[in-house]
Amino acid sequence: MLAGRHPVLHAVDGVDLTIRKGETVGLLGESGCGKTTTGRLILRLEEPTTGTIRFDGTDIVGLKGPALRAFRRRAQLVFQNPFDALNPRFTILRALAEPLVNAGIDRAEHRARIERALSRVHLPGLDRIAERFPHQLSGGQLQRIVLARALVLEPEFLVADEPVSMLDVSVRAGVLNVMREVRDAMGLAAVYISHDLALVRYVCERTLVMYLGRVVEDGPTEAVVRDPQHPYSRALVKAVPVPHVDQSHDPLPIIGSVPDARDPPSGCRFRDRCPSAVARCAEESPALREIAPGRRAACHLI
C-alpha cells in the first residue's frame, strides 16, 4: 500500500517543431516550461518517452554506437555557465582539443581547426592562450572558448542553453555579436534556449514560445515580438522592461502564477491564467495550427 508511484511529469508534451538547414531558432519560455528538456532531447542527451526526432532524415531516437557518434560530431551543445563548462585543471589547448580527440580527428589537423574556431570567436591566436587555465581568463573570454569548443568539429547544428546569462551586460554584447557572426559565416542551424526575449530577438530569425511543456506560438521573431498572437506571448512581451523611463506600467494581461506541471489544467494549459478564456478552452486542448503564412499558435480564440 505504501509503494506509491512517482507522479508522471510531462516536462515536454507533444512538442512538434522543424528546424531548417541554416536556420536559427529561439526557444523562449519561463523556468519549467520545458525549453531546456527540449534542447537536450534534440541533442539526444535525453530520451523521449514517445515521439521521433529526425536529423537530416534519420531518427536519432535509439541511435547507438558509431551512428550516435557520427551524430554527435554534427550536433554540438554550448553550455550555459562558462565557469562550469571547462575543467579548471585542463589548459585551454586541452579543452579545445578534447572534442577532436574524442571524434578521432587526425592529430595533425588539430592546430588548424582550433585556430579557425578561435578566429571565428575573435580570440587571439592559440599561442597566446594555449597554456592558460580557465581561471586566468575573464568570463567573456571563457564563453568564447566554450563557443569555440563547440565549433572545432565544424558542426551543422548547435544548441545553446542560456549562453550569456552569466555574463555582465558590457561583455554580453560582444559574445552575442560573435554568435550572430558565426550564424552568418558558418550557416549552421542553431537553437538558442533562453528566457530573455531581447536576446532571442537579437540572434534568432524564428521564435517558439513554450508554456508548460507545449509550444504555444511559433513565427518569425520580429512578428512574434511586434504582434504576439497567443495570450501568453502577449503577456510575456509586455512584461519585458526597457531601458528608458517611457514605458507602460499597466497591469499584465495574465492571471495568477504558473500551475504545478504535475497537475496541469484540462484543455488549454494556459486557460486559468488567460483573461479571455471561454468554456471550450477547458474542454479541448488547442492544436498548434497555422494562423498566417509562417506563423502558428495554439489557441481556440485566434
Binding site: G140, V169, S170, R172, L197, L199, R201, E222, Q247
Partner: peptide, 14 residues
C-alpha cells in the same frame, strides 16, 4: 550594450 525591445535592429555594442 543593453538590448531594448522597443528599438529594433540596433547593434549591441560591447
Amino acid at each position: 550594450a543593453f538590448p531594448d525591445l522597443q528599438r529594433s535592429g540596433d547593434l549591441l555594442v560591447p
